[in-house]
């Protein structure tokens, strides 16, 4: 086993090393993570019934209509039918919020509604409830093109996200871009590198055997290059989420996508 990994590791090392010396530009247009999946994984996403991510859609719908908190409200009390009120929301998030003078994502907005309007406790990041609600809200925009705003007040946050994306980090001294921009479409060991697009998030990941958020994925990537990950919901990841959403502009929202 050790020997096999040694060989494989060497091969990848050589592959990455070789490609690092080559200028960027392997990028062949904006591609959803979907296009990198095997026919079986695609099939799991294509059929709503086979897609295990739909469990989270169902859960989210129940929570949408469930009264919680001292104000005696459910999401539906103010926002009525999510199919109408939440349609398109996923395409413009994350977005700049002038009240907090920061970029917010859907998870943040859900918890803000809970604490401010519903007087309910915020949900923990990556909790079943927050995932289900995020999946449910984003699902209402399925098929619509990603179209985040990176103008005006959002500019510094977009730039911070871009800087994060291109910044080397961790023991491997690698930036997001080394895998997902410069080498997307190539194999790192047995792993086909995607562009790291977020249009299907939260995704049902075969590896996790559950749904997971964009920030969980960011943490995983950061750990993989042996860097200390930031907290889910941190400013760093909010800005990165904005930048990565912009990279995927025009891609259809696929939530809940199925990925390996």
């Amino acid at each position: 086993m050790g020997k096999r990994h040694l060989g494989a590791g060497l091969a990848v090392g050589a592959l990455l090393a070789a490609s690092l010396a080559v200028p960027a530009g392997a990028d062949d247009g904006i591609r959803s993570g979907y296009s990198y999946m095997t026919p079986e994984t695609k099939g799991m996403q294509d059929d709503d019934f086979q897609n295990p991510g739909m469990i989270w859609v169902d859960d989210g719908e129940k929570l949408w209509n469930t009264v919680d908190g001292k104000a005696g409200k459910a999401c539906a009390t103010c926002h009525k039918d999510a199919a109408t009120s939440m349609k398109g929301v996923a395409t413009v998030y994350p977005k700049y919020d002038p009240k907090i003078k920061k970029v917010k994502n859907i998870e943040w907005q859900v918890n803000n509604c809970r604490t401010e309007r519903m007087q309910a406790k915020p949900w923990k990041y990556e909790s079943g409830q927050l995932l289900a609600m995020t999946v449910y809200i984003r699902h209402q925009s399925r098929g619509m093109p990603m179209n985040v705003s990176v103008d005006g007040d959002a500019i510094p946050f977009f730039q911070a996200g871009e800087k994060f994306y291109n910044q080397r980090r961790g023991l491997l001294d690698m930036a997001c871009k080394h895998c997902h921009a410069d080498n997307a479409g190539k194999n790192a060991r047995a792993n086909l590198l995607s562009q790291g697009q977020t249009n299907g998030f939260p995704v049902y990941r075969l590896k996790w055997q559950k749904a997971g958020s964009t920030h969980r994925r960011f943490r995983g990537c950061n750990k993989q290059v042996r860097a200390t990950p930031y907290k889910a919901g941190s400013d760093e990841y909010m800005n990165l989420e904005l930048y990565v959403a912009w990279r995927g502009r025009g891609l259809p929202v696929e939530t809940p996508a199925v990925r390996n």
Partner: peptide, 9 residues
């Protein structure tokens, strides 16, 4: 007949 159930297994 298709069935799906949420469970950690």
């Amino acid at each position: 007949v298709k069935t799906l159930i949420s469970h950690k297994m």
